[in-house]
Structure formats: C-alpha cells, structure tokens
Amino acid sequence: MPSSLPSDRHMGFSSAETVGRILTFLLWKFWKLCGAAVLFLILIYWMYGTVIILILLIVTVIGGLYHYQDSLLYFPEQPESSRVFVQTPSSLGLPFELVTLTAKDKTSIVAYFIKQPPTAMSTAPTLLYFHGNAGNIGHRLHNAQALYHHCGFNVLLVEYRGYGKSHGSPCESGLYQDAQASWDFLLSRHDIDQSKLIIFGRSLGGAVAIHLAASLGHNDHLMALIVENTFCGIPHMAQLMFPGATAIPHIFFKNQFLSISEIRKVRSPALLLSGLADQLIPPTMMSDLYQNCGSRVKLIETFPGGTHNCTWTSFGYYDYINKFVGFTSHTGGGKTDSDEPELN
C-alpha cells in the first residue's frame, strides 16, 4: 500500500533544491548589482577620468614643490666647500670671539663677535649682521672689516642653521629663532653699550632683520634697523619669476618671509640701502618697503651702480650709515617730529 507521506529522502532532495534556487537567485541579484556598480565606475572614469588624473597631478606637483622650496631658496653649499671651510676674522687682522649660540629649539649655531679695542668696545655701537641666502659668514668678512674700521662698530656675524659650521637645516621659523638667540646674546653682554644695538640684514638677511625688529617694537636697546637690497616677500618674488604664481595662495609657500607686512610693525629708526643696478631683487621692492615702514624716522638711500651683492662697495655707502647712526644717537633713538632725517 503506497504511503501517503513523502519519504525522508524525497524531502531532503526537495529542501536542497529550494535552497539551491534561493542561493542562485541571490547570486544573480548580487551579480547584477556588482555589474551595475562596475559599469557605473567605468562610466565615471570615462567621463571624469582626465579631470581626476589632472587633479592628482596638480596635487603631486604642488606637494613636490612645497617640499622642494628649501632647495630653491637656501644655498649653504654655494660656493663649494662653504660648509667645510669658513674664513676667520683673524685672517684680516680683526680681533674676534668665536661664539656658540643655542636657539629655542636647541639648534646650535655659531657666530663671530668682532670687537673694537677695549678702550672703545664698551661705547661703540654693536651691529647684528644677517647675511644673504648663500655662502657663510666668512664670505662677509671684508664688509664686516669696513663696518669695523669706517663705522667703528662691534660686529656680530651670525651663521644661520645649516650654514657654515652651524647645525640643523635652514627654514623660515628656524632663522627667526637664530635671530632671537643672537639678540639675546647681545643683551647678555655687559661689556658693550646695550642702548646702541643695530640690526642689519642684506637680501634674505633683510627679511630676518625686519622680522626681529618688528617683534621688538619699541625697544630701548634697538638703536636702528638697516636693510639692504631685500624683498617684500617670497610670494612676491615668485610672482616676479613665474607670472602664473599670482594665483597661488600664500599657504602653499613653505617659506614666506612677508617683510611687506612685518615692516609695518617696525618702530625703530630705519635706514634702507638700495642698489639701483640690482638684477635679482627689483629696487621697487625696497621703495615699497620704505613706503610701508611703520617707523616715524626712516630714510632710503639709493646707489645708481649698486648691484645685489656689491652695493656695500659703492661710494658713500659707509658715510650714509655713519650719518644715520649719528643722527639717531643725537636724537635719542630718532625721537623727532620729522619722518625723514636730512643727512647732509
């Protein structure tokens, strides 16, 4: 007599078949979904792939340039052997003290402190010297020698981090720290007249000098700021060299040195020395810095034949410095109603 109920074998086969159908259905749905997703991605890439690649290329280039900018600005190894050999002041018969300074971030830098004879050292003005973006302090000794003999200054020649025998690597914030450490060193010296401190900078050093003077504001120790052939800022120089750089926001510049903004905060008497034959930094930038300088006592002197690196050899160069420093000394730090002193 046939059974009215299916056997266990048939029930098992039926259940397996049902599960198989369900799995097949789900796999088919999943495949269609994946296929649609892949098709969508291919369509997006076909429509916008070039744009995506272009964006990735631009980001890569900007990122590379951002990290490569130091190599475009700082040249501590030019000329060759600049990190190996640094001429000393004694080679020019200048009495000096080799100084080691420690910046806020613990970076160790060196400096030459060229000192007037003991009878004059304590009363002479002391000039804090920041050089340009290449070479080392030994390459500035002839200029320092003239400042020593013709102007009667004590001179502190500062070697930036990553230059000469100084440790570390150069960067904007690091150079500012080096400048502050140098200033603090002068304030620790009781064998000089701390009311006669002068901050001097040429080219890149001008930006460092302006930043330091701006950070000091009204300061009884700062007698004068002197800058020579310096720029308004790195973005401004980039715009000059690459017209398309005008559209690049400042945030993309690793080093900015925005002296055009910093100089508005300067309150000490300021002398700007501009070589009109400068082929590297347009003399118009020196004029812009002069116009924006926040000091009530400021003066710009021009030298028709002065080039970027050799304006200091121009006729009358040291006479202008002496007259300006003498003027600020006789007016108690330049406290006068006149905005521009007359140096006759």
Rank of each mutant, 00 (worst) to 15 (best):
Y176L: 07
Y163F: 13
L175K: 07
G174Q: 06
N154C: 08
A179V: 05
L175R: 04
F153G: 01
E159N: 14
A181T: 02
G164E: 11
P170A: 11
S169H: 09
L175T: 01
G162T: 05
G168R: 11
L175Q: 10
K165I: 13
P170M: 08
Y176K: 13
Q177F: 02
Y160S: 04
G162W: 02
L157F: 08
R161Q: 12
G168A: 12
G174L: 06
Y163C: 06
L157G: 11
F153N: 05
H167R: 13
Y163M: 03
H167W: 04
A179L: 06
G168N: 10
Q180L: 13
S169Y: 05
Q180P: 00
G168P: 08
S182M: 05
G162C: 08
Q177W: 02
Y163S: 03
S166R: 15
E159Q: 14
H167F: 09
Q177D: 09
L157H: 11
C171T: 14
H167C: 08
L157N: 13
D178I: 10
Y160C: 05
E159C: 12
A179M: 07
A179T: 04
Y163T: 14
D178L: 04
V155F: 06
V155D: 02
Q180F: 11
Q177N: 09
P170L: 06
V155Q: 00
S182Q: 03
S169I: 12
L175N: 12
Q180K: 15
F153P: 00
G174A: 15
E172L: 10
R161A: 04
S173C: 08
S182R: 03
Y176V: 11
A181E: 04
R161E: 07
E159R: 11
R161H: 10
G174V: 08
P170T: 07
E172Q: 15
L175H: 13
P170W: 04
Y176G: 15
K165E: 09
Q180C: 04
D178Y: 04
E172A: 01
S182G: 09
K165M: 07
A179R: 03
A181K: 02
E172S: 05
R161M: 10
S166T: 15
Y176M: 12
S182T: 02
A181N: 06
